[in-house]
């Protein structure tokens, strides 16, 4: 992936929007310095400002959107730390460290095939808009379990999105890997020049990467991991890549599919 300049810092950022979007929670905060330099696929470490010691640590959130001096993230409330984040009210402050991580490599020219699963769609929205803005051919497929999650696909504003749910309550009743096969088949010989951008649950990402390989397409994968520091200090957020453990925070979160080892 590309080399990113050393420009992360910790900011106290006022929350200007906090609302549920189906199963998720959209939070926008003022962070002009981050918004000015953030690239698709990068993330921020966020927690509510203040001395409270529980939850103790910030949570990594992929940057979902950047608008003027606003940064937006999409939180899935799954554990104590993420549930507390969704309690934010307009006017509250978040402690935000970022931007962090390498981000996606945008230098390719073939069709960009974006594949998202669940809340993994969040950072792909910024990616899709950026690539479309550069005139690149972009195809988007998003998969969800059910409708309450799939309604968040409305957050993809700049590109058309194919949606599927496992129970058929919104979009096609299918797994996103089925949509991906149709997309790559539809591309014909251009599929081998296509590049996948994948973010979602492990099994979904693995299926997408295997499909890409069958069609000869490259893939970039954004992984999620339990993180403490976000800056490469704690060595906690490792994934298996290139025959060794690598930190998702400062050697990722985006990896080439070929170097990741799936477990």
């Amino acid at each position: 992936m590309e080399t990113v300049p050393a420009q992360a810092d910790l900011y106290q950022c006022p929350v200007v929007e906090s609302r549920t979007v189906g199963a998720y929670h959209l939070i926008a905060f003022v962070a002009g310095e981050i918004a000015a330099v953030a690239r698709p696929g990068q993330f921020v470490m966020i927690r509510q400002s203040g001395p409270a010691l529980d939850p103790l640590l910030p949570r990594p959130m992929g940057i979902h959107a950047v608008e003027a001096d606003l940064v937006k993230v999409l939180v899935e409330p799954v554990g104590k730390g993420t549930v507390v984040l969704t309690d934010a009210r307009v006017g509250d402050r978040y402690s935000v460290l970022g931007p962090l991580g390498n981000g996606f490599d945008l230098s390719g020219e073939g069709t960009a095939v974006i594949v998202g699963g669940g809340v993994g769609m969040a950072p792909l929205a910024l990616l899709a808009g950026t690539l479309a803005g550069r005139g690149r051919d972009v195809r988007c497929q998003l998969g969800f379990k059910t409708r309450v999650q799939a309604v968040a696909a409305e957050l993809f504003r700049d590109v058309d999105v194919d949606i599927c749910t496992e129970d058929g309550t919104m979009g096609r009743k299918a797994m996103v890997s089925e949509l991906l096969v149709e997309c790559l088949t539809d591309l014909g010989p251009a599929a081998a020049e296509a590049e996948l951008f994948v973010c979602g649950p492990g099994a979904m990402m693995r299926a997408a990467v295997e499909t890409a390989r069958e069609y000869g397409a490259d893939a970039q994968v954004s992984v999620a991991a339990h993180m403490a520091c976000g800056v490469g200090a704690c060595q906690g957020c490792v994934v298996r890549a290139g025959g060794e453990y690598r930190c998702a925070c400062n050697q990722g979160p985006v990896f080439r599919a070929g170097e990741l080892e799936w477990r």
């Binding site: 104590k80 730390g81 339990h226 704690c234 490792v238």
Partner: peptide, 12 residues
């Protein structure tokens, strides 16, 4: 092997 981290009440 991962997971290497897990947050607990006011602790890691």
């Amino acid at each position: 092997p991962p997971h290497r981290l897990y947050e607990t009440a006011a602790g890691l």
